[in-house]
């Protein structure tokens, strides 16, 4: 069961803070929902920095990033 982080509608840096919190908890996979390209790129950057694999899927109202351990 994936952990879901709903960061839609939140502005910088909150999507990143929420994603980081989930990464620190360490339960994978993590699904992060965002609604802007900015948030998508920011979350992608910190996840890749943390050595995670990132899969991005478009959704109706933005993007879903699936973070898994490489």
């Amino acid at each position: 069961m994936a952990v879901t982080v709903d960061a839609r509608g939140l502005s910088c840096p909150q999507p990143v803070i929420l994603a980081r919190k989930a990464i620190d908890v360490g339960k994978f996979p993590i699904e992060v929902l965002v609604d802007s390209v900015t948030s998508r790129e920011n979350v992608r950057r910190i996840a890749e920095k943390a050595g995670l694999e990132v899969d991005v899927q478009p959704t109706d109202d933005g993007f879903k990033l699936i973070l898994t351990r490489a």
Binding site: R8, G9, L10, S11, P13, Q14, I17
Partner: peptide, 11 residues
Amino acid sequence: LKSGYSLGRSN
């Protein structure tokens, strides 16, 4: 921000 500050979501 660390203590949970947020202006809430936009729509």
